[in-house]
Design a binder for these strands. Structure first.
Lengths: 233, 233
DNA sequence: CAGTATCCGATGCGATACTG
DNA sequence: CAGTATCGCATCGGATACTG
């Protein structure tokens, strides 16, 4: 059976929004992803088939509009006004998840590529120094499933931030060495940056001024500062 | 595969919230339903098996708490604080649905029992006269699937409102005759009460003062007053 | 790379029957 | 009434192979 057989606005909204993967596809679109490959990077476990199908459904529902790229191959997927007005729903849902669902940091669910891709998106560029800063990340205690991704580079400039999975060739200014799980916890707000350093799960090396400034460039997850009811009570 | 394999708060929230039927079950709980049968009345198409399964999942997630009824049989299902904090998500989702999804009033999706059950919940009791008012509803143009439910009674008192599917025996004060689809459209805010009367889709008969006051008792759907972008532009 | 077509296996879910 | 146990099927979705 398709749909809920009700004309209640909540029910019809759910028929569009509450399908499997759909809220996460919208999360990616509203975070700025526009191309098929970018969407997949943010949704590592979705299959190409299903992503294509969901994008078509969203387009039929008027939530996404797509058009061929000028480059000839592939399409650009753009969220419509209807999608933009779902941002509030998604943000509230995320805040609720942060408050009420204890995420599994047990590393089953850890994808460092996706994590660093998100970190890249949440750099406070206005706080960067005028010159380019290259940060090398080296991960320790990486879950066996993720061998092959032991580190990456973040190239920080006021004009834009790049994530490199291979050595971009620039001289490295800062070296960040960290347990995979510690990075995740800091990102999620479960542990503060200074506490992570104190506990030894994370270390930053380089010129003193850059080391000191580095944490202030990280905006962390949108939900890092949502307070947790268990923590509060 | 179960879950999204991400620790993003949006993803974990979706694993709890965005399952099939779950938002609608929460809608019913937050609207005041507490018993299995009440929930089913608001979700006519869900199977008992699935409703029971979802309630168990919600209880495991800490969103619902249940306990046996003092009467011995059946349980009471109570939304927890976590559920209460989903109200904002559900309300926003409903407002979005009202704005962006054109509901199908084609009567495929029309369940008069559920509709009147909702009407009952949205009576502004403070506006009622001091004495009891009994309203008889007679439906016209009822879709064939729904034969057998041609009308009902609403017993309005300041102390409470009852919906009767069988004649409660009281003397009738007001007679409302209406097309099933017209009632639905008025409830949803797609058409105003006076317009429905003018178009002939709805008629109210009885003492003049009661007829005049009647529309003011109806609060209509929570989303009846959300403005529609198509209508606006 | 950016998808589409096809196949087939897992599972989600309804129907039915049963219990207190 | 308020559920639970079981069965069987439909559909959802992943894997694979293919196209431009």
């Amino acid at each position: 059976m398709k749909g809920y057989g009700q004309f209640c606005p909540i029910a019809v909204a759910c028929e569009v929004f509450a399908e499997r993967w759909t809220p996460l596809i919208l999360r990616e679109l509203l975070a700025g992803s526009r191309r098929f490959g970018d969407l997949r990077r943010g949704l590592p476990l979705i299959s190409r088939t299903l992503l294509a199908q969901r994008l078509r459904e969203l387009e039929d529902a008027g939530v996404v509009q797509s058009r061929p790229l000028p480059s000839g191959r592939g399409r650009e997927y753009q969220p419509t006004q209807a999608a933009e007005e779902l941002r509030g729903v998604i943000d509230l849902l995320g805040a609720w998840g942060q408050r009420w669902v204890r995420a599994q940091y047990n590393l089953e669910n850890l994808d460092m590529t996706m994590l660093m891709w998100n970190v890249r998106r949440r750099i406070d560029r206005r706080r960067l120094p005028a010159r380019r800063v290259v940060v090398r990340f080296e991960f320790r205690a990486v879950p066996p499933r993720l061998r092959g991704f032991r580190g990456c580079w973040l190239v920080l400039e006021r004009t834009g931030v790049d994530l490199c999975l291979k050595d971009p060739g620039f001289e490295v200014d800062l070296l960040v060495t960290a347990d995979a799980a510690t990075i995740a916890r800091v990102w999620m707000g479960a542990v503060s940056f200074p506490d992570a350093v104190r506990s030894g799960g994370l270390r930053v090396e380089g010129p003193r001024d850059l080391v000191r400034a580095f944490p202030s460039w990280l905006l962390l997850s949108h939900f890092a500062h949502v307070d947790h009811p268990v923590r509060a009570s």
